[in-house]
Write a protein that binds this DNA or RNA. Structure first.
Lengths: 198, 198
DNA sequence: TAGAAAATCTAGCAGTGCTAGGAATTGGAG
DNA sequence: CTCCAATTCCTAGCACTGCTAGATTTTCTA
């Protein structure tokens, strides 16, 4: 009877192996190189085995994306300060986010550019994605800010993602990278502070 | 001898027809539907004709992207105020940008998601893209802002693109769309205003 | 009008994601 | 230990992709 559980565990291990292999291959040679043939060869099984674990290639990409959201959550959590965001903590968050994207470009692509079938602000949103947004909101919230915290977190996230996205496609000059990150922190701070009457 | 010029003009027309057809097909059914076969069928020529105009499919996508940059430039120009950006002009810019992306999703994808071979802040950057950045910088520059205008324009652009990108992939709730745009304007204003000593 | 030059098409290659059907391995009953 | 069912797995193939070599048609020139 314990055979069943062993079988199940082996299946789970293979499941994880597929995700891990896809990730490694994508980071090494780009997602174009992640074909079902090469992937199956890498896990030392034939193609159809992949389809007993995932409905299709898109689902494998989505699985890699979810792993990425989990990792990003862990890193962002470390930048949260109990009494609300400070300049220092915001700088840490921005640096953390950008560094994760730079260090894992293929995973980041899976998370944002290739995951067509991963809706977010909806009922069917996977948990790691919900958590990611919640943690980000926690990390950017100032002590006594005005306005909707959700909306504020959303535009912070958009700014971060836009920065990463444009930099990754080589559309922003590299030599001003640090200045941009600093300016973004300033922007967050300025926007989160109570607006004074003009 | 005038035959040559007529020939040349006909070729130019076909060149434009290919770009236009690719764009229409992409907007109608998505870029996945834009195969060389379907495209050639649509222009009523065989596949190899496409390759006498473009080096490959990527170059066709890039051509559509450049058209998009040109259109976006025209629209953004209309939001520039001679004496520096105001809240009103910034709101117009944000609305213009977002609306263009929403109205032409496939073109926007060609501009930012699919154009792997279109470097930007570099020597070989095509003119429409340079112009687009210059116009955006003009549109967001306040009367007497501090800091590097390039850096400021870069993070504005990043924020705009990030917003569009996340909204397009269904990762931000729709019902707060307007609030986000307003918050973004506030953020731009706050960041561009002279920083007062804390 | 004959022949060279240019334009265009047919047919095919190597690769993709995905799957039906048969082969091999495994598990439990006698 | 043996047999047979159930599960697991692989081979082979489909329809499609971007792209191209070589034959064919059309156009222009002498």
């Amino acid at each position: 009877m314990t055979k069943h559980v062993r079988k199940g565990r082996e299946r789970d291990e293979r499941h994880a192996l597929i995700i891990q292999s896809a990730r490694e291959l994508a980071e090494a040679e780009g997602w174009d190189a992640v074909t079902t043939r090469r992937l199956s060869q890498r896990i030392e099984y034939s193609q159809p085995v992949l389809y007993t674990h995932f409905r299709g290639k898109d689902e494998i990409v989505a699985a890699v994306a979810l792993v990425g959201f989990g990792e990003l959550v862990d890193r962002m959590k470390a930048t949260i300060t109990p009494k609300g965001a400070t300049r220092k903590s915001l700088a840490a968050l921005v640096a953390t986010y950008v560094e994760y994207a730079e260090a894992n470009p293929a995973v980041y692509d899976a998370m944002f550019a290739l995951s067509t079938g991963l809706p977010f602000a909806q009922d069917e949103t996977p948990k790691p994605m919900r958590t990611a947004f919640a943690v980000l909101r926690e990390a950017v919230m100032p002590q006594n800010g005005e306005g909707d915290p959700d909306v504020y977190a959303e535009i912070c996230w958009a700014s971060l993602h836009g920065l990463v996205s444009l930099e990754r496609s080589g559309r922003l000059p590299e030599h001003t990278h640090r200045q941009r990150m600093a300016a973004l922190v300033d922007q967050f701070l300025a926007a989160s502070a109570p607006t004074r009457p003009k």
